[in-house]
Design a protein around this nucleic acid. Sequence first.
DNA 1: GTGAAAGCGCTAACAC
DNA 2: GTGTTAGCGCTTTCAC
Lengths: 350, 350
Amino acid sequence: MTGLRSAPEKVPARRRSGRAPTIHDVALAAGVSKSAVSLAIRNQRGVSEATREHILSVAQELGYRSNVWARSLVQGRTGLVGVLLQDLGNSYHRDLTFGVEDTAVENDLRLVIAHGRRDPHRMQAELDSLLALGVEGVVIVSSWVPPQSLERIGRRVPLVVVGRLPERVSGIDTVANHDELGAKLAVEHLVSLGHTRIAHLTGSSRPAAMHRRQAFSEIVRNLLPGIEPQIEGPEHLDAAIKYLIFQLQEETSAPTAVFTQNDRIAADLVGACLDAGLRIPEQLSVVGYDNSSVCRMLRPQLTSVDQPRTEMGRMALEMLLERIGGRIEDRHITIAPSLEVRASTAAPRN
Amino acid sequence: MTGLRSAPEKVPARRRSGRAPTIHDVALAAGVSKSAVSLAIRNQRGVSEATREHILSVAQELGYRSNVWARSLVQGRTGLVGVLLQDLGNSYHRDLTFGVEDTAVENDLRLVIAHGRRDPHRMQAELDSLLALGVEGVVIVSSWVPPQSLERIGRRVPLVVVGRLPERVSGIDTVANHDELGAKLAVEHLVSLGHTRIAHLTGSSRPAAMHRRQAFSEIVRNLLPGIEPQIEGPEHLDAAIKYLIFQLQEETSAPTAVFTQNDRIAADLVGACLDAGLRIPEQLSVVGYDNSSVCRMLRPQLTSVDQPRTEMGRMALEMLLERIGGRIEDRHITIAPSLEVRASTAAPRN
DNA sequence: GTGAAAGCGCTAACAC
DNA sequence: GTGTTAGCGCTTTCAC
């Protein structure tokens, strides 16, 4: 192994014997110049058809693969786009990523996935990492990155955020779910079943959750004049669920339906109710948000607001492409959700 | 900005005015040589403390960030490792990735995540993509990549597969769950509750599933001599579930417990049973595999075999590092699972 | 249609 | 301690 480079000192130390062949090796083996090889492998004109075929077959034989880094260095672009996910292991994010991936592939871009692990520091680190890699644009699927970070990053590279931000950030684009419509669909559905005492159960006070909450309050005030919207939860989800169950067991004025901030919270609620011997939907109707895969796993199956995830991912990447292509003005789009009705909602108890 | 180099036409066209500053720009601005800057930013000795500080402050001011690609090109290494996940949106994969990430970060490696989308073609494409990026090693979390592909890739770059392969592949390392032990834990638990008619429900005939199935058969033969292991499912999961339910409703010899290949299948089974009016665990005990997040969402909560996922991810990356460090011989390790007992298992009906 | 030469941003060896 | 030089593997003029 090491014997190969006994003689000259000119061979760089790092050039191991089994090193990947370079364009130079191919040129040598094919008896042409480096540039001929370069043109051939990129399918550019400038070499005759015969030479190209010859070069390609030699390259194939040698197991040549072009070095992306070297190419990027000279071309000044990497062909990479990054997507930062707040949470792998989340089917909502998975489906979004499908849309992003497909659109990236269609446009000859390579997608690099980074994982924020629901940790703001990690998130920032991953973002830096993506930039260091030289991505030509970033899609962030999360509302957790602070506006000033977003603005800073947006100045360096095209940036699209999928999610509801606490405030408008200039220089970036956003794709968001239409929370007002989502709340409207859910509440209208419940009202049409005959519910009037509808509560909202939420697990956080982050902007995205706040927004969804406000949308709920507004639609309740519209649809059920005179009834004060009931909000349960922020910060102390477990306690809120316990309290809800207490009401259901003890008070005749308890809510007959709950619209939750997301499916995970809905699942927690449903589980706790069943544990307490309450029957769903007979004693309580529950509507989730996201229409994730758990909806069909639970019994009763969960009625949930569905977001066109793949489509949202696709839009995000398309907006990114527009930016990369030179668009200057910001775009903020909102996508309409729909309601998937299943077995967790029914007419209220008497 | 552009004024600095007004004179010659030598300025390459691609060098836009707003282009990121290079080591050269920093050197110019700081009044030192390129190498001084290089040393300073890499915190290497060879520059005086005073110069270093000066250089760093100038670099900071200019917003300089070193170009990873250029560095990699000359150093001959990228500092990148790749992980190919068969499925984002899977909490098992997420937890595994945690371990991989942590270990990568601890070793100054950057992790690039690729997504196979449960599609063999995509998987292969992503793998190629990772190699093209110049990763120094790959962790594949999937059993779906064909052995010959693995062998080919293993020759180019260190490779660790997390999962059960259909056959030994030389030149690569593997981390696998100890299926025999998992099956033993599950079946012993059921037997200790008094079950004797235990079935295995599986959704595929892939090697990984087959292996788990065989482990089940073996342990049943050991623990319950004279009783033939009952296998339900391969290929036609829905039909198998329907058949199981039919047995439970009509036949006194129906199984009293089912050990499933994974939690998702367990969830399907539990859901179908509940829909059919069967009670769990009173009429049927169910054991899942993976101890994923759904276990705690379902009612009854699911007893499941737990794999130390984060630990497995960590081991995978450590093995990769050993390889990168020069280990030649293959390592195949097996990790012991444990059993998480919840409410889906109980003594059999009479 | 082809080859030679310059240089992308950086590091590493070697003079100064 | 500091600057100079020669590449890393590739693309891209520009002569031939």
